[in-house]
Computed example of a mutant assay.
Amino acid sequence: MSLRIIAGQWRARKIVTPAGETTRPTADRTRETLFSMLASRLGSFEGLAIADLFAGSGALGFEALSRGAASCIFVEQDPAAIRALRSNISNLQASPQCDVRATSVLSLGPAKAPLDLILLDPPYQTGAGEVALDKLQRLGWIGPATWISLETAHNEVPSIKGLQMSADRKVGKARITLLRMAPAPD
């Protein structure tokens, strides 16, 4: 199966997805809704440092890079998905902007600096996104200016201590939740 990048410099370019049932690529309509939600808040993706966690084929990260993000850390542990991800990086000639980490999101270490945007599309109904975000907050990946997108099943309502919901939208079988760091209590 292949997906198309929706907008930006790689608009309409195909990216491959891994075969099998292990990876569930984000549907075009869901990606379109997500990036519309982000664009209305960020204004532009130009120069952003981002991460695509539970990356699969990298569709979310490539969409952000296509729209001008400066760099993307892709984190994925499934071997078939990593092969698809590396193939897509090669086909798009995006190596200089990409950092692939073939590991579990939960084994990431401390961040050098908070990222501008973190995109998470974990397996549905597992709570993996909440667990990952809790850990990433403690490790410095999330700062006051960081935007976070968490995709879950439409009936999951994420709640992560220290983060507050900025927007929430159901799209088909998916729920997109945009999160920010909660302001420190006075």
Rank of each mutant, 00 (worst) to 15 (best):
Glu46Leu: 09
Glu46Met: 07
Gly47Met: 07
Leu48Cys: 12
Ile50Thr: 14
Ala51Leu: 02
Asp52Ile: 00
Asp52Trp: 06
Ala55Lys: 00
Gly56Lys: 06
Gly56Asn: 05
Gly58Met: 06
Ala59Glu: 00
Ala59Trp: 03
Ala59Pro: 07
Leu60Tyr: 04
Leu60Arg: 06
Phe62Asn: 05
Phe62Tyr: 10
Glu63Asn: 08
Ala64Leu: 00
Leu65Arg: 10
Ser66Glu: 08
Arg67Val: 03
Gly68Pro: 11
Gly68Gln: 10
Gly68Asp: 09
Ala69Thr: 03
Ala70Phe: 00
Cys72Ser: 12
Phe74Asp: 00
Val75Lys: 06
Val75Gln: 01
Glu76Gln: 12
Gln77Cys: 07
Gln77Glu: 13
Asp78Phe: 02
Pro79Ile: 09
Pro79Leu: 13
Pro79Ser: 15
Ala80Leu: 15
Ala80Val: 01
Ala81Arg: 09
Ala81Leu: 06
Ile82Gln: 13
Ile82Thr: 13
Arg83Asn: 11
Arg83Tyr: 10
Leu85Gly: 08
Leu85Trp: 13
Leu85Asp: 08
Arg86Cys: 13
Ser87Asn: 14
Asn88Lys: 09
Ile89Arg: 13
Ile89Gln: 14
Leu92Val: 12
Ala94Tyr: 02
Ala94Phe: 02
Ser95Thr: 14
Ser95Leu: 10
Pro96Asn: 06
Asp99Arg: 15
Val100Gln: 09
Val100Ile: 14
Arg101Thr: 02
Val105Gln: 01
Val105Tyr: 01
Leu106Lys: 12
Ser107Gly: 01
Leu108Val: 06
Gly109Arg: 10
Gly109Asp: 12
Pro110Asp: 11
Pro110Thr: 14
Ala111Ile: 11
Ala111Leu: 07
Ala111Asn: 07
Lys112Glu: 14
Lys112Val: 02
Ala113Arg: 15
Pro114Ile: 10
Leu115Glu: 01
Asp116His: 13
Leu117Phe: 12
Leu117Ile: 11
Ile118Asn: 06
Leu120Lys: 05
Leu120Trp: 01
Asp121Leu: 00
